[in-house]
Amino acid sequence: MIARELIGTAQVPGGGELRLFRHDRDFIIDLDRSELMSTRMSGSEERLATMACDRLAGRPAPHLLIGGYGMGFTLRAALARLGPSGRATVAELVPEIVEWARGPMAEVAQGCLEDSRVTVEIRDVAAVIGRTTAGFDAILLDVDNGPDGLCRAANDRLYSREGLAAARRALRPGGVLAVWSAAPDKVFARRIADAGFVVEEATVAARSNGKGPRHVIWFATPRGT
């Protein structure tokens, strides 16, 4: 039996510890001994990007904000769809996540952080959204397991009425707010609609082969744009 190898640890601002493990050919990041993400499951994170990009078809130079680098699945899938004129800004709160991507997980990252279309900000994505007006064609949030978060109580503001209003202001006309979640959340779905969005809910497979657990993505477009 192959044992897990601990590669690195990182403190989450506001509390909690992330640990990066290698297990055979896979990498796993856990939070306080609960698995948070793994290279074994990337399908729904990739769909977050591809389905959002599909909704931006026809825009000549779309600019995406990706909240949470994770293991880079969403970013790499977005770059494959954006074309040469597209751009992606990645907001990642924990600097070690980016260091791991450029270090022990470089083979997984496939150079995506060095792509000329990518800007990385070591910053809370809520702060990036809050300082922006009509700056993004899409905002893709894969933060803290979705609205029912695990890591930081501060992440709740992303999914609050105020956070959704800020996201609406940060989007360009006709832009898309895409929110990934590990599980359905009827209360949050209603909250998005009440915040002035037209909402579509999609259920997608966790694995790229269509198998595994089912995750949820909400795609929301500001009403009237």
Rank of each mutant, 00 (worst) to 15 (best):
V204L: 02
V94Q: 00
D185M: 01
A52M: 08
T203D: 10
V179K: 00
L171Q: 09
C151T: 08
D32A: 06
I139Q: 03
L150G: 01
P95E: 12
V143P: 03
A126K: 13
L36P: 04
Y69L: 03
D194L: 13
R131P: 00
P60C: 10
S34F: 13
A126Q: 14
S160A: 13
G16A: 06
A10F: 01
E107M: 09
R190K: 15
P173E: 10
S34H: 14
Y69M: 00
C151R: 04
L65H: 07
D26C: 00
P222D: 05
T221W: 02
L20Y: 00
A80N: 13
H215G: 05
S208H: 01
L64S: 14
G163N: 08
S208E: 09
A153R: 06
A178W: 09
L65D: 12
A138W: 08
V128L: 12
A77Y: 01
G175K: 01
E201L: 09
L6E: 14
V12G: 00
L79M: 04
L177Q: 04
R4Y: 11
A88G: 13
L113Y: 11
R19C: 03
V120L: 15
A88D: 12
G86P: 04
D144I: 03
R102D: 12
P184C: 07
A61I: 07
A91Y: 01
S85A: 15
I97W: 00
S85N: 12
D194R: 15
G14V: 13
P184R: 05
T89E: 14
A49V: 07
R123Y: 00
R207G: 01
E35C: 01
D142A: 03
V179L: 04
I7V: 15
S160D: 05
R76G: 10
C53K: 07
